[in-house]
């Protein structure tokens, strides 16, 4: 009797562990998309300000590098969290198709800025970070649409 209950419990745990919890509704998924877009916009615009400060010689290399690394972690974390969510339906698939590529682009550029900052290539940061301007604008529109 005890072993049967134990096997049932183990089976229940295995089934539970195998499930990736989906977002229940399109509205919830859309809200999550909006939050993700906002988080990445925040990181992108912080990097743009940081790059401007770097080019003007108004800060120190380590401080700038830490700033970029901090917000890179935020953007990457937002991307990973959103990418791991199971879309509940076809409209949510479309949301994912619109949002994820832009988020990936933003994170990719931020990574390049971080690498340059750590190499003390501070005068090059604005040029490397420049693509973030239009990316952030598009993400901002998506955040408004989904939010």
């Amino acid at each position: 009797m005890r072993f049967r209950r134990a096997r049932q419990l183990i089976a229940l745990l295995a089934v539970t562990a195998a499930c990736i919890a989906p977002t229940r509704t399109e509205a919830a998924y859309q809200a999550k998309a909006g939050d993700t877009a906002e988080a990445v916009v925040s990181a992108a615009r912080t990097v743009l300000v940081t790059a401007r400060v770097a080019a003007a010689g108004q800060s120190f290399g380590p401080t700038l590098a830490v700033t970029v690394a901090d917000v890179e972690a935020d953007a990457a974390s937002a991307r990973d969290a959103f990418a791991s969510i199971q879309p509940p339906d076809a409209p949510s698939d479309a949301i994912r198709r619109h949002l994820l590529p832009e988020v990936e682009r933003a994170v990719g550029v931020i990574e390049l800025v971080r690498i340059a900052a750590r190499r003390d290539l501070l005068d090059r940061l604005p040029a490397i970070a420049a693509p973030l301007q239009p990316i952030a604008a598009r993400l901002d529109r998506l955040a408004t649409r989904f939010g």
């Binding site: 925040s42 615009r45 912080t46 300000v49 700033t67 901090d70 901002d140």
Partner: peptide
Amino acid sequence: GVSVDHLSQ
């Protein structure tokens, strides 16, 4: 639209 989450910011 920047959210401050780090002392670096």
